[in-house]
């Protein structure tokens, strides 16, 4: 374990910046997001979850796929350093592992390289994740519904706990240990530090909501596709799409060309299944023309379709969508509503 005095963090971050492009929670306008930093002083240590999720680091809101001109196509390269992210939370780290199923693993067609996304892989594949424990989960957090925990290390390279005056860093992966070995802090974590960590963990867990059993959710959702419950759930949604933009696991995108004449670029941009035009076809036909159909798509994708493909939910319980929704459509309530729902049809159907 490595113990770093908070006032000396910049030294550590500078060392990190020698090998990596470093991202961390920081101010972006009036919001907080993961941003490339140049010194430890930019890091926002005082917040739990950033407004915008860290998916932007690996799957940016807009990304150039290639530039075109008379000279042909030019694909952006990353000759920079690999990426390190400081201040990730357990839910953030889990969300990247979920997105990696979509962009990196190409699970659906094993062995087929064409289904791997090179733009994701060039950023994610050799990144270094510092996963920081949440001492004070927010009222919107519900990671414990999805096997998450504010002090979980899963998926991290280095696990970080803020003990007040210090950060205690523990290597989790080989990559994480290799980097920590480069740093000489002079201070060792003591028994008192470990006791403190255990105490912080207990306090943090007390902030979380009661765990509800979401195992039956998948099977229940298989039965409610054409039930009136979707009307009930979706009535107040105004299809603004804010939930999908802040969501750390939503990955829908659009591809579009920007430029004039023969010179320009093809870019991809976050898109949202909440928008009516998302699925509207040239003929005018729209398989998800109704708000109810789109809300159902979002909820079903998270808790049923993704489960069907990857045996896990596409939600970490980060609560960002709960924070941002202008009409207070709370996804936790939706989950409960589905679980409690009495089918209008006979169960055996």
């Amino acid at each position: 374990m490595v113990k770093i005095k908070k006032t000396g963090l910049n030294e550590f971050i500078e060392l990190l910046m020698k090998d990596y492009d470093v991202y961390s929670p920081a101010d972006v306008g009036k919001k907080t997001a993961f941003k490339k930093i140049n010194s430890a002083f930019e890091i926002r240590h005082d917040i739990t979850n950033t407004h915008l999720s860290p998916k932007d680091v690996f799957f940016p809101q807009s990304e150039v796929l290639f530039q075109y001109s008379d000279d042909g196509l030019k694909v952006p390269q990353r000759n920079e350093k690999p990426i390190a992210v400081w201040g990730m939370r357990n839910c953030d780290t889990s969300s990247l592992m979920m997105l990696n199923k979509v962009f990196g693993d190409a699970h659906q067609m094993p062995g087929k390289d064409m289904y791997k996304d090179p733009y994701w892989k060039m950023k994610y594949d050799n990144c270094l994740i510092f996963n920081q424990a949440c001492n004070e989960p927010l009222s919107t957090c519900f990671c414990n519904w999805f096997d998450g925990n504010p002090f979980a290390e899963k998926g991290a390279d280095v696990f970080v706990v803020d003990t007040g005056d210090h950060f205690i860093l523990e290597g989790v992966s080989d990559k994480g240990n290799a980097f920590l070995a480069k740093y000489k802090s002079g201070e060792e974590a003591t028994k008192a530090d470990l006791d403190k960590i255990a105490e912080l963990k207990k306090t943090a867990e007390s902030y979380l909501p009661d765990v509800i059993d979401i195992k039956p959710l998948f099977a229940k959702m298989n039965k409610i596709w054409d039930e009136p419950i979707w009307e009930e759930i979706s009535t107040k949604c105004i299809n603004c799409g804010a939930c999908t933009f802040v969501c750390s696991t939503c990955h829908c995108f659009d591809v579009t060309d920007e430029g004039k004449g023969k010179k320009g670029k093809r870019i991809r941009l976050w898109d949202s299944c909440m928008f009516q035009i998302f699925t509207r076809e040239a003929s005018g036909h729209n398989p998800r023309g109704l708000s109810t159909q789109r809300v159902r798509q979002r909820i079903m994708h998270k808790y049923n379709y993704f489960m069907d493909n990857y045996e896990q939910h596409l939600c970490t319980g980060c609560g960002r969508c709960v924070q941002v929704c202008p009409v207070n459509l709370d996804i936790r309530e939706v989950i409960k509503q589905v679980l409690d729902y009495k089918l209008s049809k006979n169960e055996d159907n």
Partner: peptide, 25 residues
């Protein structure tokens, strides 16, 4: 089947029907 498509490789989410993507499944 036909649906509106973009990526064609199961990433952009556009052509989903249930848990399948028309472009790859």
């Amino acid at each position: 089947l036909e649906r509106r498509m973009k990526c064609g490789i199961g990433k952009c989410g556009r052509c989903g029907i249930g848990s399948k993507y028309i472009c790859i499944d």
